[in-house]
Write a protein that binds this DNA or RNA. Structure first.
Length: 418
DNA sequence: TCTGGGGTCCTAGGACCC
DNA sequence: TCTGGGGTCCTAGGACCC
């Protein structure tokens, strides 16, 4: 059996832990730059606020419906996630951290356990230790555990937050209940395609001929189909080394000049290099893209990208900025209002096992310099910058509604007044 | 005015090798 | 006149996830 434990409305729940007055009120958390809604409490869902709604479109609900709005606070969410996952890891020897708010547990050798009670115990323990509410789905396969988890959450009054699918009758019931678009692994495109041929729920999908699924959805669809039918196919996955690492951001405003875009891209380079160093990694290629705002249909649109080969595998900000600037010159066009740029580091390799080139290699002084810069920036970010970065602006995100970083900054710890 | 960020996997087709 | 067979690697594009 597999268990999937998922934190309910995770980001919104994190905000509530440190401000219980938010309980019972509609809460939303916004994306970077306070752009759009990326998390909602149940009350916010009831207000029909959809995932991805632009923040300015829900602003009026603050007054009219008591909506509470938060900028995203990843320092808080990341730390809370680590606490929850560590505790849940104690419930099984084999786990897979699936996302910031979900974890799979493999339940082998638990035959003597009453799984429903075991699930309730998880919920109690996590709630008491962290204040985060979670739901538990248990089933013979991962895809079915996902289904079970949705049911546990949807009917929480009845299930107490735990649902177990452990026989063919419950499998069929669960599959029938799951709309095709809600199936794990079926996105918008496939959902539309499947609806068009009369496949409306997960059960319909399991009954499709294998050849059809293989042809239209490749081996991925086939595996999913088996797993949903109750034949264990998808197993826990090992955490593997990352293949890509990205820094992509929309700008706070539109930029019309090369100088402004160049400044942003330099700053993103510095961010990316720093991220590489933090993970003891380096890269030998970087993909750079820039584009205008696709939502502003009345403005001329432009979008382009370029892959830049670095002279050698590196994580030096100096080398990366120098190479990426060459790429930017190639794709930048005058006459457009730019809204977003991004960098993706590719061909990642561990810093220690770096492949040396024959003719040219990194100036050995870079690595010493970089670790010193990182040290200086650790306490006050932006203390040391590169010449291409704006000395004042550097890295300022719009974050009007951010809560305190209660668990990771001593200066922002919660205050209790008597 | 204002619309996110960071990832993964699979497949087909082209270039190239012997 | 007649032009093979088997393989690898890389990339772009399409799908998906949270």
């Amino acid at each position: 059996m597999y268990a999937l434990i998922d934190c309910n409305n995770f980001y919104a729940s994190c905000e509530r832990v440190f401000d219980p007055s938010l309980n019972g009120k509609p809460v939303v958390v916004l994306s970077n730059n306070d752009g759009c809604v990326i998390a909602r409490s149940n009350e916010a869902k009831k207000l029909e606020i959809k995932m991805g709604t632009p923040a300015f479109q829900v602003m009026h609900l603050v007054k009219s419906s008591g909506l509470k709005m938060f900028s995203s606070n990843y320092a808080l969410y990341g730390d809370m996630s680590a606490r929850v996952m560590t505790l849940l890891g104690d419930f099984s020897p084999e786990v897979e951290l699936y996302s910031i708010d979900e974890i799979f547990l493999k339940m082998v050798g638990f035959e003597k356990f009453v799984l429903h009670e075991y699930g309730l115990l998880m919920i109690q323990k996590i709630l008491r230790a962290t204040g985060i509410p979670v739901s538990v789905g248990i089933a013979p396969t991962k895809a079915l555990a996902k289904v079970a988890n949705k049911i546990a959450k949807k009917f929480s009054e009845k299930t107490g937050g735990v649902h177990i699918i452990d026989n063919p009758v419950l499998i069929e019931k669960g599959l029938k209940w799951t709309k095709i678009g809600d199936v794990w692994g079926i996105g918008r495109r496939y959902a539309a395609k499947l609806e068009a041929i009369g496949v409306h729920n997960a059960l319909d999908f399991t009954l499709l001929p294998k050849q059809y699924v293989q042809k239209e959805m490749s081996i991925v669809g086939l595996r999913l189909q088996r797993d949903l039918s109750g034949l264990p196919t998808l197993d826990l996955e090992q955490t593997k080394a990352k293949k890509n690492m990205a820094v992509t951001r929309a700008f706070g405003k539109n930029y019309d000049t090369y100088g402004e875009v160049r400044e942003r891209v330099s700053t993103y380079c510095a961010k990316l290099a720093e991220k590489l160093r933090r993970e003891d990694s380096c890269c030998s290629q970087v993909y750079l893209f820039i584009h205008t705002n696709p939502h502003r249909k009345e403005l001329p649109q432009y979008s382009n990208g370029v892959t830049i080969k670095l002279p050698y595998a590196t994580n030096s900000t100096i080398t990366i900025i120098k190479s990426v600037m060459g790429g930017l010159e190639k794709i930048y066009r005058d006459g457009f209002s730019y809204k977003k740029a991004g960098l993706v580091a590719m061909d990642l390799a561990p810093d220690s096992g770096r492949q040396l080139a024959i003719f040219s290699n990194e100036d050995p002084r870079h690595s010493t310099l970089m670790s010193m810069i990182d040290r200086l920036n650790r306490t006050t970010y932006g203390r040391v910058r590169f010449a291409g970065q704006d000395p004042i602006k550097t890295w300022k995100m719009r974050q009007e509604f951010r809560s305190n970083r209660f668990t990771t900054r001593l200066g922002e710890i919660i205050l209790i007044r008597c």
